[in-house]
Design a protein around this nucleic acid. Sequence first.
DNA 1: CCATTTTATCTTGATGTCAAGATAACCGCA
DNA 2: TGCGGTTATCTTGACATCAAGATAAAATGG
Lengths: 162, 162
Amino acid sequence: MFNIEDIRAQWAKQRPDIDTAPMATIGRVVRLSALLCEQMSKTHEKHGLNSASFDVLATLLRSGPPYALSPNDLLATMMVTSGTMTNRIDQLEKDGLVERVRNPKDRRSVFVQLTETGRKIIDAAVTDHVMVQRNLVEGLSDEDLATLNGILDKGLAALSQD
Amino acid sequence: MFNIEDIRAQWAKQRPDIDTAPMATIGRVVRLSALLCEQMSKTHEKHGLNSASFDVLATLLRSGPPYALSPNDLLATMMVTSGTMTNRIDQLEKDGLVERVRNPKDRRSVFVQLTETGRKIIDAAVTDHVMVQRNLVEGLSDEDLATLNGILDKGLAALSQD
DNA sequence: CCATTTTATCTTGATGTCAAGATAACCGCA
DNA sequence: TGCGGTTATCTTGACATCAAGATAAAATGG
C-alpha cells in the first residue's frame, strides 16, 4: 500500500536536511516485525490462544518437565511487568491451562505449572507455530537467514547492554 | 539477559523434532524491533509525545503544506482502526497540536491539520528522532544497512501482498 | 428523484498493558 | 530475637487499542 522509500521521498522534499538512511532500515525492521507478529498471532488464535498466552505456555513447555516456573522467572524472560504477568496467569488458570502451585520452600512465591490440558494444547500449538514460521521465511535462502542473523546480532549487541 | 540461541538449545532438548532455524531469525527481527521502538519512544516522550502521536504528527508534517490529511488517510498509512485514530486525534486536538477542519466538499469528512504549535513541536521532534535513529544503527556499516534492506525487502514482499 | 449501497467518522464495551503502590514473607545483621 | 531492607506477587487506576456497530452524508442506478 505505501512503502518506506515513498516515505523517504516525502521527507526529502519537506525536510531535505535530514538523513533518512537509518529510517529506511529501522522502518523495514519494525514493519517486518509487525507483519510477522500479525501472521503468527493468527496461528495462536487457531489454538484458542493469543500471543501473550502462547508465550507463557511455550516458555513453560521449553523449560522441560515438570513444566513449572515462577511468575518472576516468566516475566523476566518476557520483558513485561509483574501486573501483566499476574493477569496472564489468571487468564490461563481460569482456562485450566496452568495452575498455581505453592512453593513449600518460599511462601512468597508460587510455581506456574502446565496442566495436562495445557501441555497438550501448547504442544500442538508449537508444532503448528514452527511450521508457520518456516513458511514466513520461505522467501529467504539459508544464506540470507545466516547473513540476517549476523547483522541483526550486531544491532542487538549495541542495544542489549545492561 | 537471555538470548535466542539459548532458547533454541532449550527447544532442541525438549522438542528435538522441530526446526528452529526460522525462529532464530524471526526472534531476532522481533526483538530488535521491540528494542528500537523502546529507544525511539524515549525521544518522543522528551517532546511531550508518545509514539502514536508522534506518528500522526510526523505523517502530517511529511505530507507538506498545508499539513492536513483526513482521518481516513492517516489510519490507512498507520494500520490502525478508525476508533484508534479518532482517539489519537482527540488527544492531539485537546493538546492544541492539531485541529479538525471541515471539508466543504464532503461533509462526511474532516481534515486534521497541524496547528502552528503542533508544527513547531513535530519539526523539532523529527530532527531529534532522526539523530537518535542514526545512533541506533551506528554499529552497522553502510554496507550492512544496504544488505539488510535488500533481505528485509524480500521478506516484506512475501508478506505485503494485498 | 428516490431507494440502496458505499464511504467517513465516531461511539461503545472489552481487553491487555503499564506504573505505582500494597501486602506478605524472607534475609541479614545487630 | 527482632528490626530494617529486600524480594515475590498481587492490586488498582489509567490508557491505547480493537471489533462491532451507530450515524450521517455521498454516490449509484433504476
